[in-house]
Design a protein around this nucleic acid. Structure first.
Length: 872
RNA sequence: GCGGUCGUGGCGGAAUGGUAGACGCGCAAGCUUGAGGUGCUUGUGGGGGUAACCCCGUGGAAGUUCGAGUCUUCUCGACCGCACCA
């Protein structure tokens, strides 16, 4: 025993610094991860993709966690017999490159390509099973030229259009923002309060697919429920009615106002009508009423930001105009302009029913408008029921409502709509919260929109033989605004139709366009067309997509739209881009400050040393350090850990192992030095165990010890397989620890017949099962078992569990009395019920618990449990 | 406000309605070592007992069940998303 321990301690250490690059080289040389655009093998396909990175300059731990998860899946599926597509590229357009250009005078292209080179090298050191031959960057004309072609096809198909619209304007970035890019009324990047502004912009008609995008969510059974819910709410279907309200007298040439409502059943509870400040009638009133004009201007200045901050503060202006009630021609109501009415939703006008809408009651109470309840809650008394400051929005019976009286809410909705239709004053309507996708950006580092504005011909598409429209090499980024617009020559071209001097569109696409179809381009990245039909037909949809929850709405919804648009334009024929979606959690870390509160400066983890007592001090000064919260890694709090030094110190496999083993992949993971060290010990231990097994020999035959080890080995195969199938990477690693422990125990037991062979089998299985998580170590360990072989684990099939060895020779049955565990019995599997019950009763502890009691029922679950229900 | 997720040892976490705490970290004792940020052994939910064992225990309360961490209802707490959507 002591001899083998000594041997273990003296065994050479696994030299990952030498081994990891060597195996990476071997995989590349063999082309282990290369597949054809249109494979001719008969193996099933599997497309695994991680959300491609923005080339910011460095790979961070969050990236690494993302790509390692994808790599585990890719390597596992490959071993399971799939032909696996696993590409990587760069989401390379974006603002940081322009900022670098502005601040440091580097051209965005150089900055971006330099970052890509650095990050590619970092990724390669992780040992990911990526097919680098497919790599591309979206800032390459070889990519974005195809995007321009796609856009022109969408435009011809009526899925792209130019329209005047109210936009969210970021005054700091000087650009338009999509609704999705406005967070709490502020620009998602600049953080500046967003203003309302009317501009002519390019839009992609995602609303044309609103219903389909919503309905198809039901088919995405391998998507997280919460992502689907977020999309469902974002698309925002509502059923209601469009109602026309005639003005008592015309304002300008406006004679009526249209309203959208989900509560036509409460029309008799109306007490006012409210308009959005941007509504045409508001403008018409403002044109003749300076006070109204001032109110409208005030609303616009507040933009969306103030409105959010002062959610409770509703403000309105009584225009003096009145509208007639559709069902009560002799009754009219005041028309207000109100800051809480949104022009973008519905018709930009609402009818106010304070009794049954919380916003309306707040508005009515503030301005002294009438409140008439029309829905009577169950068991309420119609004579006394009243609304104070709380609207009643529950179910009930309609009253105070003429022909609707006595109906329940749903029946009244139908009846009201029918009556509106009969009167020609309205109709039922489905409304959507989703708006069209504004894709124009006033930026110089993005894909040019391939359109030309001609004074005579209007908007003219760039002829396809002139694609790609490339960015100028000499754009100047040293002043605010759009560099393409400033450029002396770039935008000046002849109109393709009439030849007259014309101007290019100087806006570029929202970068979300770039990432909305890259997964399709990966199928045939060098094709002369945007995609090669055979390739996308073969590979799409992506079988497993992995990325951050922050893209739950924007990127995923846009991609879902793009697949539909590309299907309509004949590029592909799938319904959805991503059949399976997995959203991984963030990587967090403790934060450190030199002193409590605002006096303390943030310290990097490298500067801090933890003391045995749990306190921390500064590495060089020895000053005490304040340990702060565990939170998302961020540059400002300096609580970041870079993969590079970790890999240099412990090796890629150790980092990979730690990342996968620490906790479930969809939860946030706290990065700790102790955790990495633990994983490092495991990698070294696995190597030593397998190395030591290489020479193990023993007598022929078999023994209990050998059989036991073989059982553990095969159970581990089954358990790891199941864990990997269900994304339970942490459980998979735990099972590998168990196998390593069993192998370690066997190493120390006396030689028994067949044990040497069982150890070799366990060692080989261990080497192959760790491969998805720790691929370099797997190769090195396998090589030590088969020194003469040139097979790579990366090319081997997944081990198969032997069913005979999965079946136990004895099972442990728990014996309960009244549901409480009183003992266990070890019996042969599938033993007869009576024998097991007898054995259970015979257990001394069980017998004691049963003493003096009468058994009234015996619960028996074969191979699992016995439960005696007793009385007395 | 609306919607959702999650509450299990000191910590990360396991657990098809069937032996709660696998596996790891940490900790403790011991062995190895010139040394230990090494290797190894044993122990480690709480309480009681020399022990065999017993009692308690998955945020809280109730329910369904022979049996609940798991299912149902309510409740408390943490986190996330959306938010004047008519």
């Amino acid at each position: 025993m002591s001899q083998s321990i000594a041997a273990a301690a003296d065994a050479p250490r696994y030299n990952f610094r030498e081994a990891e690059p060597r195996w990476q080289h071997a995989w590349a040389e063999r082309g282990c991860f290369r597949v054809a655009d249109v494979p001719t093998d008969n193996k099933p396909k599997y497309y695994v993709l991680e959300m491609f990175p923005y080339p910011s300059g460095n790979i961070h731990i969050g990236h690494m966690r993302n790509y390692v998860m994808g790599d585990v899946v890719a390597r596992y599926k490959r071993a399971r017999g799939f032909t696996v597509l696993h590409p990587m590229g760069w989401d390379a357009f974006g603002l940081p490159a322009e900022n670098a250009a502005r601040e440091r005078g580097i051209h965005p292209a150089k900055w971006t390509w330099d970052n890509i080179a650095a990050m590619r090298a970092e990724l390669q050191r992780i040992g990911l099973s990526l097919e680098w031959e497919r790599e591309f960057a979206t800032c390459d004309p070889a990519y974005y030229g195809h995007q321009q072609k796609l856009f022109l096809d969408l435009w011809r198909a009526g899925l792209a259009e130019r329209k005047e619209s109210w936009v969210n304007w970021d005054p700091v970035d000087g650009t338009v923002l999509a609704n999705e890019q406005v967070i709490d009324g502020r620009g998602w990047r600049s953080g500046a309060p967003v203003e309302r502004k009317q501009l002519s912009q390019w839009f992609l008609k995602i609303t044309a697919y609103a219903e389909e995008l919503l309905d198809a969510l039901r088919t995405l059974d391998r998507w997280p429920e919460r992502v689907k819910l977020m999309q469902e709410r974002w698309i925002g279907r509502s059923e209601g009615a469009r109602v026309q309200f005639a003005l008592a007298e015309k304002v300008g040439d406006i004679a009526q106002v249209e309203v959208y409502t989900t509560r036509p059943d409460t029309l008799f509870g109306m007490s006012f009508l409210a308009l959005a400040p941007e509504h045409p009638l508001s403008a018409a009133v403002a044109a003749r009423d300076p006070k109204a004009a001032a109110f409208v201007a005030e609303c616009r200045r507040m933009g969306t930001s103030e409105a959010v901050i002062e959610t409770a503060e509703k403000q309105g202006y009584d225009t003096g105009v009145r509208v007639r009630h559709p069902f009560l021609p002799n009754v009219s109501f005041p028309v207000w302009i109100a800051n809480f009415v949104l022009m973008e939703y519905g018709t930009g006008a609402i009818f106010g029913c304070p009794g049954h809408d919380q916003r309306d009651v707040e508005f009515a109470r503030k301005y002294g408008l009438t409140v008439t309840p029309v829905v009577l809650p169950p068991r309420a008394d119609p004579a006394t029921f009243a609304i104070d400051d709380e609207a009643y929005v529950g179910p009930g019976t309609i009253f105070n409502s003429g022909f609707l009286d006595g109906l329940d809410v749903e029946a009244a909705k139908r009846a009201a709509i029918a009556e509106l239709q009969r009167l020609g004053m309205g109709r039922g309507e489905v409304n959507w919260r989703l708006r069209d996708w504004g894709v124009s950006r006033q930026r110089g580092w993005g894909c040019p929109i391939p359109m030309i504005r001609c004074a005579a011909c209007g908007m003219v598409p760039v002829p396809e033989d002139q694609l790609p429209v490339t960015l100028p090499d000499d754009a100047q980024f040293d002043r605010p605004g759009n560099p393409l617009d400033h450029h002396p020559t770039w935008k000046h071209v002849a109109c393709p139709q009439c030849g007259a001097p014309a101007q290019r569109e100087t806006d570029t696409f929202d970068t979300f366009v770039d990432s909305s179809w890259y997964f399709a381009r990966f199928c045939s990245p060098r094709a002369a067309a945007p995609v090669e039909r055979d390739a996308v037909d073969h590979w799409l949809p992506v079988d497993q997509y992995i990325g951050g929850i922050e893209h739950a709405i924007l990127h995923l919804l846009y991609s879902r739209f793009f697949v539909r648009a590309m299907k309509r334009t004949g590029y592909l024929n799938v319904e959805e881009p991503f059949a399976g979606l997995f959203t991984q959690g963030m990587v967090t870390h403790e934060s450190y400050r030199s002193a409590p509160g605002p006096n303390g400066t943030w310290l990097y983890p490298d500067e801090v040393v933890r003391q045995p007592d749990g306190n921390a001090v500064h590495r060089t000064t020895g000053e005490p350090v304040v340990i702060g919260r565990v939170e998302a890694m961020s540059k400002s709090k300096r609580n970041t850990v870079a993969p590079e030094p970790i890999i240099a110190r412990y090796g890629a496999d150790t980092a990979r192992c730690y990342i996968m083993s620490d906790n479930p992949p969809d939860r946030d993971m706290e990065w700790t030095e102790a955790g990495v060290a633990g994983a490092f010990r495991f990698t070294q231990r696995v190597f030593r165990l397998i190395e030591n097994t290489g020479a193990a020999t023993s007598s022929e035959g078999t023994s209990d010890a050998a059989l036991a080890l073989r059982r553990v080995t095969h159970r581990t195969i089954a358990a790891v397989t199941e864990a990997l199938d269900s994304f339970a990477f942490n459980v998979a690693v735990a099972r590998l620890y168990e196998l390593a422990n069993a192998l370690s125990d066997a190493e120390r037991s006396a030689d028994a017949p067949g044990l040497g062979a069982a150890r070799r089998e366990a060692a080989e299985v261990l080497a192959r099962l760790i491969a998805p998580m720790m691929p370099h170590l797997a190769e090195e360990a396998y090589k030590s078992l088969y020194p003469g072989s040139d097979r790579l684990v990366a090319e081997l099939a997944w081990p198969e569990a032997d069913p005979d060895l999965l079946a136990a020779d004895t099972v442990t049955i728990a014996v309960q009395v009244m549901g409480k565990l009183r003992g266990t019995i070890n019996v042969p599997p599938d033993a007869p019920r009576d024998a097991n019950l007898a054995a259970a009763r015979a257990d001394s502890n069980v017998a004691r618990a049963l003493e003096g009691k009468r058994i009234v029922k015996e619960i028996y679950v074969p191979n699992r449990i016995v439960n005696f229900v007793v009385a007395g």
